[in-house]
């Protein structure tokens, strides 16, 4: 398998794996935040803020994969 074919196969798979990982992470964050809001509805604003921050941190990993994909995409063909 030459370099281009490997890149063409690997990039989508790589971004998919990254998306699976941060999807699991986001699910966990959402689960925790929703439970916390359910237990303490009066702390909703604070919980939501922290949830957004951590969700952004988890989401960033996929974004890194995405940026890498775009950087390497030009070399495929």
């Amino acid at each position: 398998m030459d370099f281009h074919a490997a890149l063409g196969l690997g990039l989508p798979i790589g971004i998919g794996i990254a998306a699976i990982g941060s999807g699991i992470g986001l699910g966990g964050i959402g689960n925790g935040a929703m439970q916390a809001i359910g237990r303490q509805p009066e702390a909703t604003a604070k919980i939501q803020l922290n949830m957004i921050i951590i969700a952004a941190l988890a989401e960033a990993l996929t974004i890194y994969a995405f940026v890498t994909m775009f950087l390497l995409q030009a070399r495929i063909g």
């Binding site: 952004a56 989401e59 960033a60 974004i63 890194y64 995405f66 940026v67 775009f70």
Partner: peptide
């Protein structure tokens, strides 16, 4: 690095 890549990736991805 993470601040800039996150913002760039999101907005660029959205445009794409």
């Amino acid at each position: 690095i993470s601040l800039s890549c996150r913002l760039f990736g999101n907005i660029f991805g959205e445009d794409m």
